[in-house]
Nucleic acid binder design. Structure first.
Length: 596
RNA sequence: GCGCCCGUAGCUCAGCUGGAUAGAGCACGCGCCUUCUAAGCGUGUGGUCGCAGGUUCGAAUCCUGCCGGGCGCGCCA
């Protein structure tokens, strides 16, 4: 059985398309491609509805209602279908034979967490780049959302049949990293026992002292251990003073970057994020990738020397027209052409990132996906233009933008001040509420919506807390199965499933059947948050069923007097637990066996 | 000034790339919870989908113009 056939919606869609072809042999393919089979909003409409007659009616110039009636007649004859009826402006509503739904339970149990895996990606290669925080300090909550969204999105694409590479682009070449070098050097001087004050030191260096957080103190100590006092000069006034930067800046910078990346990797690992590839901006430059990218664009006639117009309405005070090396981004949908070289001849950030993307393209990816903070939204078009230019439009380029997260505790916003070094680190957050709560909660909003992260709420054990609600459903499933002696999935798959006939049981079952379809839709839209909402709905269906057993003991999962019905229900419970685990795996959240 | 994102119930948000009578949680109203699986359950009220046009069988969804909020706007990354 192929992964595709796990999706009964896709299967019935194919049936509808076939029926449509039989009715209207001349129908163009693009009309057929628009045929959908989806769960209806109203349960009363049945199990599935298709718009086939609506989209075909237009192409064939026939009234959709009449076409719907003819289509319904054909679909009603299918073995899977109990009832098919035209409805509304031209829908066909289908009610499936309940056995078709029940037959998914053995499929789910056999597939395990792989249920919902799809072939939609066709094994194409996608590069998902996320986090990519500057290696200038520890991860804080601002990075966290991108990390979780990117990781879940990568998992989702993998589940949808893509060959995924998880990537981190290390910005280790720019001015920020230079500033890190100066800041680390300050901690080094301190480790040597200098009596210079921080302000005195700040006066000595270009741009002032930027990274004052004490996370660099251990780096200073490590530098001393590694280099002794060889990178400083004896100074009668302060015991040790600053040597000429040529002497020490490069090694200190590299040392500090390495330490920061080590810390970042540890923080990411604590969040359950492990990336496959770390691309160094500095190394790309050393390898001449920038020149190669530039030459490639030049060969296509996409680079020229020119002067840009000042931005309308907001001319910078120090604006003066300058001739620059420009990339013809406007040929690929951007508003203006973009500069590639700074006046000192080095590449702009954009140019370096073009080199980064050329690297990806050369590594053979079919699709490039990024997760960026919303403040980088203005950068999307030019990068898409560059990728289109470099790959001649062969490689797709998508960006998921994430909005800011406001951390709240006790109803009060938790302030972050990077300059003072007193921000909430990712590590703090994980220690406070746990990795699973962090990951789940970060996916309970659309990525581009602002989000409030309430430290009290995410650990609350109540229905209001989706993390708890979903975990509780899984724990309840496991509790039932343990009580029943943990029967093997294969044994449950053979259960007499016709005992599953209660409306609440069938509602839950329908939800389970919708999982493969949801995976494909969420992956296509690059929206991992849909998994969280699906699991919440699934958990609700399960809790409803559980609660009904309280009012009506004949609906309890385990009934001593009805061993056959019990086996059927255990199969349903096991399938539910399986789908929850399948979804949590995409989110990177560990399912719990019991609530404590 | 220009570009991008957003505007859905009192609040926080979904809405499956154009489908049928727009959903969920909280809050609020009512009922239930001494014994079963209650870190509660059920049920109800609540909407001019920012405004105004347009596209079509059909619009919260697409287009145009306003209003309001966020982000960005030549050598920061």
């Amino acid at each position: 059985m192929t992964a595709q056939s796990h999706d009964i919606f896709a299967a019935l869609r194919d049936r509808a398309v076939a029926a449509l072809r039989a009715l209207l042999p001349d129908l163009p393919e693009e009309a057929l491609a628009r045929v959908q089979m989806e769960p209806p909003r109203e349960a009363a409409h049945g199990d599935m509805a298709t718009n086939a007659a609506l989209v075909a009616g237009k192409a064939a110039r026939q009234p959709p209602p009449r076409l719907a009636a003819a289509l319904a007649e054909r679909l009603a004859a299918l073995p899977e279908v109990a009832e098919a009826a035209p409805a509304g402006p031209g829908f066909v509503n289908l009610r499936l034979r309940e056995d078709v739904l029940r037959a998914q339970i053995p499929v789910i149990l056999a597939a395990g967490e792989a249920y919902g895996d799809s072939a939609a990606g066709g094994g194409r290669r996608v590069n998902v780049e996320y986090v990519s925080a500057n290696p200038t300090g520890p991860m804080h909550v601002g990075h966290c959302r991108g990390a979780v969204v990117g990781d879940a999105l990568a998992n989702l694409l993998a589940k949808a049949g893509w060959a995924v590479t998880k990537e981190y682009y290390v910005n280790d070449a720019g001015a920020q990293v230079q500033a890190l070098g100066y800041a680390a050097y300050w901690r080094y001087l301190q480790a040597l026992g200098t009596t210079m004050t921080e302000e005195e030191y700040a006066q000595l260096i270009p741009g002032g002292l930027q990274y004052r957080g004490d996370y660099l103190v251990p780096v200073g100590a490590a530098l001393r251990e590694r280099f002794g006092d060889s990178l400083a000069v004896p100074d009668p006034a302060h015991r040790y003073g600053m040597a000429g930067p040529d002497h020490w800046l490069a090694p200190v910078r590299e040392f500090a970057v390495a330490r920061m990346m080590e810390a970042i990797r540890e923080d990411l690992a604590a969040l359950g994020v492990v990336q496959d590839v770390f691309v160094s901006e500095a190394q790309l430059i050393r390898e001449g990738m920038l020149e190669r990218a530039e030459a490639l664009l030049a060969a296509k006639g996409l680079i020229y020397r020119g002067v840009l117009e000042p931005p309308k309405g907001k001319t910078p005070e120090d604006w003066e027209p300058r001739e620059q090396t420009l990339f013809r981004a406007t040929q690929f949908g951007d508003e203006v052409d973009r500069p590639l070289r700074k006046s000192d001849g080095s590449g702009t950030y954009f140019a370096n990132d073009i080199a980064n993307h050329l690297g990806k393209i050369e590594r053979g990816f079919d699709a490039l996906v990024h997760v960026w903070g919303a403040d980088h939204g203005g950068y999307v078009r030019r990068m898409r233009a560059a990728v289109a230019a470099l790959s001649d439009g062969r490689v797709s380029f998508d960006v998921v933008l994430t909005q800011i997260v406001h951390v709240v505790k006790g109803g009060q916003p938790v302030r972050m001040s990077k300059r003072a070094g007193t921000y909430v680190t990712l590590r703090d957050l994980i220690e406070e509420v746990g990795r699973d709560a962090v990951r789940f909660t970060m996916l309970t909003r659309k990525a581009d919506a602002q989000m409030e992260f309430d430290l009290d709420k995410v650990v609350e054990q109540s229905r209001d807390n989706p993390v708890f609600y979903v975990q509780y459903a899984h724990a309840r499933c496991r509790s039932v199965l343990r009580q029943a002696g943990d029967p093997a999935p294969a044994a449950l798959a053979a259960a007499p499933l016709h005992h599953l006939a209660d409306p609440a049981e069938l509602t839950l079952l329908r939800r389970l059947c919708a999982w493969p379809r949801l995976v494909e839709a969420a992956a296509a839209a690059r929206e991992p948050h849909r998994i969280a909402f699906f699991l919440h709905d699934l958990a609700a269906d399960f809790h409803v069923l559980w609660n009904r057993g309280r009012d009506d003991s004949t609906l309890r999962f385990i009934r001593g007097d009805e061993p056959e019905a019990t086996r059927a229900r255990l199969a349903l419970v096991a399938a539910t637990a399986t789908v929850i685990r399948s979804g949590l795996a995409v989110m990177g959240v560990t399912p719990v066996e019991e609530m404590r």
